[in-house]
Design a protein around this nucleic acid. Structure first.
Length: 846
RNA sequence: GCCGGGAUGGUGAAACUGGUAGACACGCCAGACUCAAAAUCUGGUGCCUUCAGUGGCGUGCCGGUUCGACUCCGGCUCCCGGUACCA
């Protein structure tokens, strides 16, 4: 009884459904055998190149839905471009160095290498199960010596050019991660990985001079037309260019002159006090004479970045007892210590103009300091309740009176320059990139410390400096520091004993150039093959999460320019910028929140593939939301995506069985065929448009669903039980429609579409078939339904010739009693005809 | 504060350069098939009104431009992301 029920239900589900797992395996094997996913390096290949890249994953062990979405987007683009006749490079690899591997190693007592390689194997399997069309022959893993040796080589070049250097500096230290961090990796004063508050420590570290490239990185943002404005804006803010002046204030007594940076030299004559950071030498020096001041400085140093909830923190200060001399008037100006002045920006000291700076204003009010207006308000009088920060004409400014702010800036700077008291200065917020990390699982920094020769770079023939892969981290300092075989080395300069650097590179170093390496990933003679670079770079379409807006995406732009300037390629060969177009996809949410293990709201891609098939997982992630928007996971909508595929499957079964009759179509048949043909080509137009403009795949798939609904209803209407006879013409257009749907589904659901196409007798390689082309003649309509508005409100439609003139349309309206009644007792004031769209009759009571 | 994005049915979302608001899908309701259920199929589904044809209202709020505004302009409110005592 039970078994009977089960078998019955199996039969039924077979009738309505298809077997995803067997056909997906079948097609994956065929594509692999036929090498359809490989990019062609052959110079004789005349196809235009297209480089489609998705951000490579960190091999954490399991693919999550965010990956699935990212990679399905990239795959849809790559497959579409292949069908459009491009020679597509669509590679994949592993960002394989990093902290999680060490943490896992500590937890499991096994070396990070093993964990990493196992994860890569598992994740590669998962990617293959999704049917993603990667050229696996170019796969790279950044932890492989054949990869990082070139990064080490590059670093030695940067050392030669003075673009890399070692310096003792105040740096960000994360205790739990046991390493320093770059500025970009500190978020709200906390470590970007473990979210604990970073400490400031003075340590000798390796830096790369990204600040030398600040201007170029900023200027070329304007050329990135294919990037989201948001990301461009974030990078612009991060670089933080401002222009102003450096001004020296002489200090009375035994002090160095006080150098300040200001963007408002025009307000110089309104300075009523100076403010320096607690860490400023002048403050420290003055504190030696005042216990009270020393106590205040001590208090300031304990205000952590965290509790300093910056926006609301109270402005505090104390007079140092020191006076500065105004560089123009010579007037004595009190120097204060203020907790809002940052030692890390500008010179750690500011001139305060309370009349024209809100922060200075609040401080002056609190401590009863004078406020002197030197800029006239453009309109009306200044009420003095808040700082007046607009530009305007100078007043109370002696010889500068009457100048406009903008002119005054220049005049005052020139005046100061003449007296050696100041100069023009462009300031950036960007700091040099700190690239050394006190971690084991990373690429060794190829330098040695020799007692005789000092800091020496490893020789090129000794590269790579191999990371021993069998060490076991324990949680404290890097096991490399205890590894004698690694540490004790020979100085490449004098041949004496030397110690190796045990710090490793920031893992963002590896991800900064992988896109270039894919062009020549198997080349062991050079970092980048010049021909391969000019063949493939720049990346035409880059796809990934927005969280890398000022991390990876800034570093990669920088590194690209470094590689160019080291001479690996010219600007003609590799371009100035690595990524032409950027798509930042949204997150995958469940119950309104980002999926995470801690929240317990994850959806496992394996489970979805097992239940519905890879094609359904792909289709849903592309259909549920536009790519750059967050996607809310919805289990029943996933099932709905699968239902759509089932319907197409049954449509294919039906069309395959049609044997056209010799009888000619009925009289109205011709019109039906024409309409269907218009639907088909309208859909081709819409789907192609989606691929060419913004990748609105949700709309593209909706269009395919719509067409498939039309195809199902063709000649049958809602009653499928009717035995319909198709003429040759009808059958052929129906077939054209189904093949079009399958062809356009191929980028989204490649296995399913291929299987259906094969059943239709369309041959094996749907994925290599040309993309359908719009037949413009099919879109032409002789008669159209024209919307009729009366008084701006839609009142109905009339059927008229597509190019009908106004009189004709009005006649049609008059002939329609339902429309005409709106005109009774009314006077026509105006008639607006939008050809092909609508007619609006403006009326008023007669 | 500043920069960027957003607000449309019960839900995810469509709407080309101003021209039929809600395509497509999920959910829900009803029906067909079934002993029954599942699956599948069909129909309905913005809100209010009406027996019904109809009519009115409706894209966060207020105002403007226009024959016509989700779309453009001015002024707000709220939400999301980024960033910040940056001098």
């Amino acid at each position: 009884m039970l078994s009977e029920t089960t078998s019955q239900s199996n039969i039924n589900s077979q009738i309505h459904s298809y077997d995803a797992s067997s056909i997906e395996a079948k097609w994956q094997q065929r594509w692999r055998e036929q090498g359809v996913d490989a990019a062609c390096d052959d110079a004789e290949d005349l196809r235009e190149k297209y480089y489609c890249l998705v951000m490579f994953p960190y091999p954490s062990g399991q693919l999550h839905m965010g990956h699935v979405r990212n990679y399905c987007l990239g795959d849809a683009v790559a497959r579409y471009k292949r069908m459009q006749g491009f020679n597509v490079l669509h590679p994949m690899g592993w960002d394989a160095f990093g902290l999680p591997a060490e943490n896992a190693a500590i937890k499991h007592g096994r070396p990070p290498a093993e964990w990493t390689y196992n994860n890569i194997d598992e994740m590669r399997r998962q990617l293959k199960r999704l049917g993603l069309s990667y050229d696996w022959s170019r796969e790279i893993a950044t932890c492989h010596p054949e990869y990082y040796r070139w990064e080490q080589w590059m670093f030695t070049k940067l050392l030669e050019k003075g673009l890399a250097y070692r310096k003792e500096a105040e740096v960000n230290w994360c205790g739990p991660c046991h390493t320093v961090l770059a500025n970009e990796q500190v978020v709200d004063g906390c470590c970007w990985r473990c979210d604990t508050q970073v400490e400031r420590k003075s340590l000798a570290q390796w830096f790369i001079r990204i600040t030398d490239y600040a201007e170029e990185l900023l200027a070329e943002l304007d050329s990135l037309k294919g990037w989201p404005e948001k990301v461009v804006g974030m990078q612009r803010n991060w670089i933080g260019k401002s222009s102003g002046a450096l001004i020296d204030f002489e200090i009375e007594g035994d002090y160095e002159p006080l150098k300040i940076y200001t963007t408002r030299p025009d307000t110089l004559m309104g300075v009523t006090y100076m403010a320096v950071a607690a860490g400023h030498p002048l403050a420290q020096q003055a504190a030696a004479k005042s216990t009270e001041l020393a106590a205040f400085l001590e208090a300031c140093s304990h205000v952590s970045t965290k509790e300093a909830d910056m926006a609301t923190m109270e402005k505090k200060g104390m007079f140092t007892g020191v006076y500065a001399n105004h560089p123009v008037t010579g007037a004595a100006i009190p120097v204060w210590v203020a907790n809002f002045v940052l030692m890390t920006y500008g010179t750690g000291a500011v001139m305060s103009v309370p009349a024209h700076d809100q922060r200075d204003f609040e401080f002056a009010q609190k401590y009863g300091l004078p406020i002197k207006q030197v800029i006239g308000k453009p309109a009306g009088d200044w009420d003095g309740t808040a700082a007046m920060t607009d530009s305007g004409l100078l007043m109370q400014s002696g010889l500068f009176d009457g100048l406009h702010s903008e002119a005054a800036k220049q005049t005052i700077i020139t005046h100061l320059e003449a007296q050696g008291k100041g100069c023009e200065k462009v300031q950036y917020r960007l700091r040099d990139w700190l690239v050394s990390r006190q971690r084991y699982w990373g690429a060794p920094i190829p330098v040695l410390y020799c007692d005789a020769c000092g800091v020496v770079a490893e020789k090129e023939e000794n590269l790579p400096v191999r990371l021993p892969e069998d060490l076991q981290p324990t949680g404290g300092s890097s096991p490399l520091t205890q590894c004698d075989e690694f540490v004790h080395a020979i100085c490449p300069h004098c041949g004496g004993a030397a110690k190796r650097e045990t710090d490793t590179f920031d893992t963002f170093m590896e991800s900064s150039w992988y896109m270039a390496r894919y062009s020549s990933s198997r080349d062991n003679a050079t970092m980048l093959d010049r021909d391969a670079v000019s063949q493939w770079l720049p990346v035409d379409q880059y796809i990934g999460g927005v969280e890398h807006a000022v991390l990876h995406l800034l570093y990669a732009r920088f590194y690209h320019k470094l590689m160019r300037d080291v001479g690996l390629f010219t600007r003609e060969e590799g371009g100035d910028e690595p990524f032409k177009n950027l798509l930042t996809q949204g997150m995958v949410l469940k119950d309104g929140a980002k999926m995470s293990k801690s929240k317990g709201n994850t959806v496992d891609p394996n489970a979805i593939i097992a239940e519905f098939g890879a094609d359904t997982a792909r289709l849903f992630t592309m259909f549920a939301a536009p790519p750059e928007q967050d996607l809310e996971w919805n289990d029943s909508a996933v099932a709905g995506s699968r239902r759509f595929l089932n319907r197409v499957w049954r449509l294919v079964e039906k069309v395959v069985q049609i044997s056209p009759s010799e009888a000619e179509a009925a009289a109205n048949g011709a019109a039906d065929v024409k309409l269907l043909k218009r639907h088909i080509h309208g859909t081709i137009q819409r789907v192609t448009h989606a691929f060419e403009h913004g990748f609105a795949f949700n709309v593209a798939i909706a269009a395919l669903m719509e067409l498939s609904n039309h195809l199902q209803a063709f000649k049958v209407g809602s009653d499928e039980s009717v035995d319909v006879v198709f003429s040759h013409n009808e059958a052929s257009v129906l077939r054209e429609g189904v093949v079009s749907v399958l062809t356009m589904l191929a980028p989204f659901t490649p296995h399913f579409a291929s299987e259906c196409a094969e059943r239709m007798g369309e041959g094996e390689m749907l994925v290599l078939k040309p993309w359908p082309v719009v037949d413009a003649s099919a879109l032409v309509q002789d008669e159209i339904n024209l919307v009729v508005q009366i008084g701006g409100k839609k009142r109905g439609e009339v059927t008229v010739a597509k190019d009908a003139q106004q009189e004709t349309v009005l006649a049609a309206v008059a002939a329609d009693p339902l429309l005409n009644r709106w005109l009774e007792g009314m006077q026509m004031v105006k008639v607006v005809l939008v050809p092909g769209r609508l007619l609006n009759i403006v009326v008023k009571p007669a």
